[in-house]
Design a protein around this nucleic acid. Structure first.
Lengths: 243, 243
DNA sequence: CGGAATGTTGATATGCCTCAACTAAAGTGG
DNA sequence: CCACTTTAGTTGAGGCATATCAACATTCCG
């Protein structure tokens, strides 16, 4: 299993240039491992964390709690992501973060991260860039959920999940892990479970994807990208991945 | 008319603590004024700006261009906001920014801002925090547009516009500037113009708001906040505003 | 003053949700 | 290991919120 510092360095390298000194600074931080069971919350709305999480394994999701008990999932995160980096500078969590399937985290004290920023501004800039990419993904999510129909939304989500997994080297051929239930997909895309189920079948019938047992298989990337109105510029990666 | 540096300092103070040295650093930057006509684009999707904008006057909006020519408005910005701060660390714009009504900007070269960060990390942290609040607003927008009905969405938008104006001292009694067309409101909330019009009437009839000639008047804040399912924590302000 | 943009109203269509029942799979305890 | 329970997925029927279409009113602006 990879070292936390390496996971982080590798991730930041997807969009930022880091010097050896920068990497050393990341290496010097303290990483505390923590395992999460499926569905387990890691931070809750209102919390004031003093550590930031790095995803080492599995998938993690951010969500708003709705009155009535429902959820609005906001984003999904994989290995290398910092799902609560915002807590570095925003005291209170305005949303929660939970595991989707089993997940493994590394926790780093805020203090150490801030100290790294002060010693090496470029490390700060890289993580800042990471949070800005997060925001770009949120913007795309607004557009996806606000102005596209249910089929397109679903296709777009699969595109994003697959593309990001691919970028991080987490795909196995045309497959990647996506341990989401149909309920969760519905709560991410703002659609009823029944509709998720039907659109899923539509995408399957059209031979664009397979989705079973928490594994997403892309059968026809090109047509899936068209169906999802997907183009990856919003992910702001240094080098585009070919699929 | 206020000096750009003062506008920025004042804004950052809404959520961050700045020392006299920090303020001096902001003061030392070069601000280039620019006026925008209603609807005028200031940056476009794909651009690679080398300056960042500070809103001095009026309202500015970010939007995605949809194929077919439609727009998805992502956020609205008022005096003190930095609507394209992300361009500091993300090369290409993934969205455009335009004026809503007349607007006045101050442009600051990226280089000078970055230099300020390197000399005074806390200035960087304050602007970073600003971009994180942006992201928090995007998250709230996801939830608003994905899991609430049209009436609630509209009420929520008005709540946010009014609350933020109030925070920045831009309200006049129960009124604030909101030079949006119904079309633009529709393109922000992901609803048809006709529906905007009807829900607007519903909110008027319920005596929650007035909205005419680009001016929003809140007639009953408490009930409007309930109708919009609005609570301002996501804006992450140091001190909550009483309305 | 005329034309364009914006707002308003009514009628109709439909995409998606809700409700309800059933099946399949996964987890649990005897 | 099997009965039992729970959770997740599937299918059909019907209704509603919201979109679409179309006409008209109003305001804005050159």
């Amino acid at each position: 299993m990879a070292e936390p510092a390496d996971v982080l360095t590798h991730k930041l390298t997807e969009h930022s240039r880091l010097t050896a000194e920068d990497a050393a600074e990341l290496e010097a931080m303290t990483y505390h491992r923590r395992s999460l069971k499926p569905g387990e919350d890691f931070v809750r709305q209102g919390d004031r964390p003093d550590v930031a999480a790095l995803v080492l394994e599995g998938m993690v999701a951010r969500y708003h709690l709705l009155k009535g008990g429902g959820r609005q999932y906001l984003s999904f995160h994989i290995k290398g992501d910092l799902p609560d980096a915002q807590s570095l500078f925003l005291d209170q969590m305005d949303h929660a973060v939970c595991a989707v399937g089993e997940a493994e985290l590394a926790l780093v004290p805020h203090k150490e991260i801030i100290r790294a920023f002060e010693r090496r501004p470029s490390v700060g800039f890289a993580i800042w860039r990471e949070t800005l990419i997060d925001a770009a993904i949120f913007r795309e999510t607004i557009t996806r959920n606000s102005s596209r129909n249910t089929r397109t939304r679903l296709a777009h989500l699969f595109c994003e999940l697959f593309y990001r997994a691919r970028t991080s080297g987490l795909t196995d051929g045309n497959s990647c892990a996506a341990p989401l239930s149909q309920t969760q997909i519905g709560e991410a895309l703002g659609m009823a479970i029944v509709t998720v189920n039907r659109m899923l079948q539509a995408l399957r019938r059209a031979r664009l994807i397979e989705f079973r047992g928490g594994v997403l298989t892309v059968k026809d990337w090109k047509r899936l990208a068209v169906a999802g109105d997907f183009s990856p510029e919003y992910l702001h990666l240094k080098r585009a991945v070919r699929i």
